[in-house]
Amino acid sequence: MKKSNKFLAIALLCFCFNSCDDTYSQGKRIYSALCANCHMEDGSGLNKLIPALKGSSYLSGDSKGLVCVIRNGFRADSLGLTLRYMPAHPKMTDVEMTNLVNYLSMNFGNQKHWQLSEVKKNLQQCK
């Protein structure tokens, strides 16, 4: 490889690394738009009213339930007294879901990298 080509290769590699951050940009956008109002931008939640995502068991290990929580949400109990309500997100596409859980995992979880196929499989198993 000629020297200039090497430079080009390095430049391209850097470019890729930079835009690898961008892999999370859709996930971040979705999080800011649909989740941060409640769970807060930094994932800290609101005391007992809204759980923190940092340290959540759904974000440690490879919880199959994570995508189901996001898809189905939580209903307040019948008396409406727990107040712990989270909306469902039935229209989120598999790709959006994958980008979102990867953003969550990178920022608040154990940095697990979710594959689209795995997310699809887990979604199929949601009740």
Partner: peptide, 16 residues
């Protein structure tokens, strides 16, 4: 209001 799904939790966080 308690069932407010939009900005309330954010504001409450700052109230807290």
């Amino acid at each position: 209001f308690t069932s407010c799904p939009s900005i309330c939790p954010r504001v409450m966080k700052q109230m807290l």
